[in-house]
């Protein structure tokens, strides 16, 4: 009896999260096996016949293998912008937290403004055109970094506040220069919050739809989220192909998470007792 009393809440939670997460996923997987006609019903039913392979083939080869280009682009975009985000946000967070100057208030205001004020599309494009980065992946990476930076800085700054100042001072007395203090002493200690940043920002950048739509025109620049529009329109949608596409672009991040799950969780808990 005490077993039931102790664990019933946990069991309910697991059941609820199973329903919330697994049922939609099952719906996606079932739909990828259906043909156009059955998928248009959009019901939770067993597929008649196996159309998975023909669906995958059509999704991958559509628009001259656009999905492959999109995967390459999205991978570059996500990896590059998250790398830059982590380095820059950690640096800014470190300086902002350690060095008190009269500009701190202004800088903090600017960071908050970056979070609160929605970015305007047309002036951004105008600026990008001026420096020759419009419609290029480099420019898109910089935009993702700029949009993600305020949130990451706030995360880092709060975490750096928990690292004792004595560590920096000890390093400086031992002869470390500013870069050494940051890269060899502070950055390794930031691993837990870095993991959080990597996970949150990768998901945001990989799933970004509107920004690539406006800032990255052209087929050669397509990202995975934009390929969804190959099968969906205002008046006609091929649900079997749409869901196959969704499944294909959901699986890589899912695999990454499954494989690195151990490291992510280990990183979070290891950091928690350090410092």
């Amino acid at each position: 009896m005490s077993f039931v009393r102790r664990y019933w809440l946990g069991a309910v939670a697991i059941l609820a999260s199973g329903v919330v997460f697994l049922v939609p996923f099952a719906f996606i997987i079932l739909t990828t096996f259906k043909d156009q006609k059955q998928s248009a019903l959009r019901d939770f039913s067993w597929p008649d016949g196996n159309h998975l392979w023909s669906n995958i083939l059509e999704v991958v080869t559509t628009r001259n293998w656009m999905l492959l280009t999109a995967f390459i682009n999205s991978t570059i975009l996500t990896v590059a912008s998250v790398t830059l985000l982590v380095i820059f946000a950690a640096m800014v967070g470190f300086v902002l937290q350690r060095r008190k100057t009269r500009f701190n208030g202004l800088i903090e205001f600017l960071i908050l403004a970056g979070l609160m004020i929605p970015p305007a599309v047309v002036p951004t494009i105008w600026l990008l055109q001026g420096i020759g980065l419009f419609g290029k992946l480099h420019g898109m990476i910089l935009i993702e970094v700029a949009y993600g930076l305020p949130f990451s800085i706030i995360l880092y700054r709060a975490f750096i506040a928990t690292i004792p100042r004595e560590l920096d001072e000890a390093a400086i007395i031992d002869g470390a220069r500013p870069f050494d203090v940051f890269f060899r002493v502070i950055l390794p200690l930031l691993w837990p919050v870095t993991v959080t940043n990597i996970v949150v920002q990768s998901v945001a950048v990989f799933n970004d739809f509107t920004n690539p739509l406006y800032y990255l025109p052209g087929n050669a620049n397509a990202t995975v989220q934009l390929t969804l529009y190959n099968f969906q329109s205002q008046f006609q949608t091929s649900y079997n192909l749409l869901f196959t596409n969704i499944a294909l672009i959901t699986i890589p991040p899912l695999l990454v998470f499954l494989f690195f799950n151990r490291q992510i969780v280990a990183g979070m808990t290891a950091g928690a007792v350090k410092g």
């Binding site: 628009r63 105008w126 419009f134 739509l213 025109p217 529009y229």
Partner: peptide, 20 residues
């Protein structure tokens, strides 16, 4: 390709206004 509906209207206007 571009989306249809009002998202598409915005996109067309943006791209015309930015000469892209």
């Amino acid at each position: 390709t571009r989306p249809g509906g009002s998202e598409g209207d915005n996109l067309v206007k943006t791209r015309l206004a930015t000469s892209s």
